[in-house]
Design a binder for these strands. Structure first.
Lengths: 122, 122
DNA sequence: CAGGATCCTCTTTGATACTG
DNA sequence: CAGTATCAAAGAGGATCCTG
């Protein structure tokens, strides 16, 4: 079993936009980065601290991806030493709805099906 | 650079629920599987056809993960040959909000920042 | 501070083949 | 039909060292 037939069920489904979005947002750390930036512009180290366990390499990589996707903007302040801040673009800000939807779902179903779960804040 | 300071920004942020949800939903193919099942119960092959490029091994793996997470239920009909259908649980059905949020975002920002993009349906 | 460059390891994925 | 088993290749992730 592996052949790809044209499919039996109606395919009013193929949605490159959705798949694209999922691919952009679904990578590891990305949702956390978005969440970190919803609070306003942040510096590299702040985001890193916020997330905690991410490596510099990955954070750098994700930020670049998000920049390319037009979700995040990078602001460079020519001070000394240079200060750099990341902020959500208009496109990025609208992700708040997605983040909230996930949050609501997570809150509602916390521990329902998984381990007893930690009382952790939401 | 790697030290973990208590962080400068306020951390009313640590949210295991959100992270958990993201981890469950963020794996490759999962969002597509959810989407496939929002249309009702589907058989293994139907989901496979719907998604198109997923391998049996992966689909099987994802379905089991989703079952464990309480998002999907497996129905076995003791016919001959046996028929098996997958359907979203109550918990899974509530993911519609998440899917829609992503969908709205994707539609609004299609191709804004990425390649010209295909005209593909949403 | 804000990363870039490397190296190396652990997963994930995708073919393929086989089963009840 | 509905998977499971196996395996090799690809990719993601982490740690470390190094700049401007």
């Amino acid at each position: 079993m592996a052949a790809k037939k044209p499919s039996t069920i109606d395919l009013a489904h193929f949605c490159p936009k959705y798949e694209n979005a999922v691919q952009t947002l679904g990578k590891r750390w990305t949702p956390l980065i978005i969440r970190a930036l919803l609070g306003g512009s942040r510096r590299f180290t702040e985001i890193s601290d916020y997330i905690g366990a991410i490596s510099d390499r990955l954070l750098s990589e994700r930020l670049k991806e998000l920049e390319r996707a037009g979700v995040v903007e990078k602001r460079v302040f020519p001070e000394t030493p240079v200060r750099i801040e990341y902020v959500l673009s208009a496109k990025g800000l609208e992700l708040q709805g997605v983040v909230e939807a996930i949050q609501r779902w997570a809150d509602r179903w916390a521990a329902a099906g998984e381990a007893a779960a930690t009382p952790g804040r939401s």
